[in-house]
């Protein structure tokens, strides 16, 4: 059967392709520039060549990245911290969301409003008090072959993870999504003798895949892109993350100058994990955004 030509569909696709290309341009610029030296980047910047790896392309910028900083260490740190925050965050925030959406207790709505209110507080305003707080907390450290109780969380993975596990936005997302799951399922399980945690674990969680995927992607992005907090609490290279690593390339007033090619190569390398995470969760992410109307 011959398909009919549809003007509306053509325009729709035309718009989609246009915006896809438009939003791809910065990524194309970053990737193509990562194969050029700074002079070539600036020479090409005013033409279409900026978006393609043309001219004298090479891998020197990538080699320069590995010379300049411990990339694998920074990548490991970022992946480890982001993964732990995401995993613990999914568990803690979904449980909190479940309690607010499903259980009956006094002050339920006040708690939800309080959680939503935390979303409007910029992190920068609480960064300094948080720093003082974490610096005075007790910590179990492994030193000289034994566990020791010390004070202060600075220079640990813990300080980059613990403050970000509970996240108001994620809890709100779960609350909204859990409300779309029919309560009759809970009631049937209760009649069968299931506990609240059992209902959460066996009924709610399997049905809330899109919410988990969305929360995972958004919290991964937030932690992956964290900059101010790691700068404040990490005083050793061994625990530094990829975003702070970007600072290694800025040196406008040194003989060497700012290494734009290396910046692009480094940016390309640290973007790859984000793209992988997004591709893995893409289908569920889109489904959740479409159903809950929530976006990051």
């Amino acid at each position: 059967m011959k398909k009919k030509f549809s003007l509306g569909l053509t325009i729709q696709y035309g718009f989609a392709i246009f915006f896809m290309l438009l939003f791809s341009l910065p990524l194309l610029f970053m990737i193509s520039s990562s194969f050029k030296d700074p002079q070539a980047i600036f020479a090409d910047v005013k033409s279409w060549r900026a978006f393609f790896p043309v001219g004298d392309v090479n891998f020197d910028q990538y080699l320069g990245v590995f010379d300049r900083l411990p990339l694998w260490q920074f990548l490991f740190n970022s992946i480890f911290i982001s993964a732990v925050v995401v995993l613990l965050g999914l568990f803690v925030n979904s449980l909190a969301g479940y309690a607010i959406a499903r259980l009956k207790f006094k002050g339920q709505n006040i708690i939800l409003v309080g959680l939503i209110a935390t979303l409007v507080i910029p992190f920068e305003t609480i960064a300094m008090p948080l720093l003082v707080l974490v610096n005075s907390l007790p910590r179990v450290g492994f030193e000289n072959g034994s566990f020791e109780l010390t004070t202060g969380w600075l220079n640990t993975y813990l300080v980059q993870i613990a403050p970000f596990i509970a996240w108001g936005f994620s809890i709100f997302l779960f609350v909204q999504y859990f409300k779309t799951i029919p309560k009759e399922l809970d009631e049937a399980a209760l009649i069968d003798g299931a506990s609240f945690f059992s209902i959460y674990w066996r009924i709610i969680v399997p049905l809330a895949g899109p919410a988990f995927a969305t929360s995972a992607i958004l919290s991964f992005l937030a932690i992956w892109n964290a900059y101010l907090w790691p700068v404040m609490v990490v005083q050793t290279e061994a625990l530094r993350t990829v975003q702070v690593g970007l600072d290694y390339f800025w040196a406008s007033t040194s003989e060497e100058g700012t290494q734009w090619g290396e910046i692009m190569a480094y940016s390309t390398l640290i973007t790859v994990p984000i793209i992988i995470v997004f591709v893995i969760f893409q289908r569920s992410f889109v489904a959740s955004v479409a159903s809950s109307g929530v976006k990051g």
């Binding site: 300094m128 720093l131 610096n135 700068v231 404040m232 005083q235 290279e237 702070v244 690593g245 600072d247």
Partner: peptide, 21 residues
């Protein structure tokens, strides 16, 4: 020695001063 990138060095110093480190 502990090395810091120049761009964020001053912020690291300010944070270290606040946390007495």
């Amino acid at each position: 020695l502990e090395e810091f990138p120049q761009e964020s060095y001053n912020d690291s110093i300010a944070a270290a001063a606040a946390s007495n480190s």
